[in-house]
Simulated assay, not measured.
Amino acid sequence: MFPGVEIAVGYLFAWAVRKLGTAADRQVDQALDTGIDRLHTLVSDRLGADDPALQQAAEEARDGQDELAVDTRQWLALTINNAAKKDEEFAKALMVAVEAVQAAARAAGGASAGGDGIAIGGDAEIHAAGGSVAAVRIDGPVTVGIPANPQQPGAEKG
């Protein structure tokens, strides 16, 4: 996947939500607003405003969803990625547009993460006590300590 595609998808959905009035009461920083508009124009010009993946994202925004459905997010990301593979100028322009929106979001006090990252804007505190585990995200199994009477492999329970 080309760098920035997944991030672009999130911003495109934010554009659709904002433009379709489902978040009309929110004030958006002008630089961020302009950057998202430019990103949307770049992508919709390249894909075509009637692109099915873009249309599905707009429909989900109209329906008031807070975020894109997983399959729509993947579909739009793959559509944009395929366009970037075929058009090096588009790929470069996409990267510049995503970086500009991220910079505007940071300047507006927002947090930004790429790929499968987690962004926290502001203070965050994670605390574990009494032999427990605390994390923002844990990918995989976690074992804390050794059980008092561990089951031996092949031994019958009882």
Rank of each mutant, 00 (worst) to 15 (best):
V5G: 00
A103D: 12
A103S: 12
L42D: 08
K19S: 14
D33W: 02
E156I: 15
R46G: 00
L42I: 10
P153I: 06
K86V: 00
A129T: 15
A53V: 12
P52A: 14
I126T: 14
W75F: 13
V101G: 07
Q55Y: 00
Q56I: 01
V43S: 03
A23P: 06
L20H: 11
A93D: 12
A155L: 04
G64E: 07
A91P: 09
P141T: 15
D45V: 06
N149Q: 12
K157N: 09
H40P: 01
A104L: 09
A108W: 03
S44R: 08
V101H: 08
Q30R: 15
V17W: 10
G130W: 08
G10I: 03
L39A: 03
D71N: 15
L12C: 06
Q55V: 14
P153Q: 04
G35T: 01
R18W: 08
K157S: 07
A124W: 10
L47I: 11
D50Q: 13
D29Y: 03
T34N: 14
G131S: 02
P52H: 11
E156Y: 14
T22E: 09
V142L: 13
G114R: 05
V9I: 05
V9C: 05
A8V: 07
A77Y: 09
L54K: 09
N82I: 05
R137D: 07
T34A: 15
Q65E: 15
S44F: 06
G145R: 09
T72S: 14
G121R: 10
G122C: 10
G21K: 06
A24Y: 05
V136Y: 04
A119W: 12
R73Y: 12
V70C: 07
D63C: 05
D123C: 00
T72E: 02
Q30S: 15
E6L: 11
Q27N: 04
F2H: 02
I7G: 14
V98F: 05
Q30C: 11
G21H: 08
D37Y: 00
M1H: 07
E6D: 07
V133F: 07
E67G: 15
A93S: 11
P147Q: 06
I36G: 02
A100K: 01
A23R: 11
Q152M: 02
L76G: 00
L68C: 03
P52W: 08
A103C: 05
T34P: 02
T41R: 13
T143C: 01
L42G: 12
E59I: 09
R62D: 13
A104R: 08
N81E: 15
A124P: 04
R18A: 08
A53P: 15
T143M: 04
G4Y: 07
G121C: 06
S112N: 08
L94C: 02
R38W: 07
A23T: 06
A135P: 02
K157P: 04
D29H: 09
G122W: 14
A119S: 12
L54W: 10
N82S: 08
D139N: 13
R26P: 00
D71Q: 15
D87Y: 05
S112A: 13
A134S: 11
E125Q: 11
Q74V: 15
W75E: 13
D66H: 04
A58V: 05
K157T: 10
P52R: 13
Q102A: 10
L39T: 06
V5A: 04
D123K: 03
V101D: 09
K19Y: 07
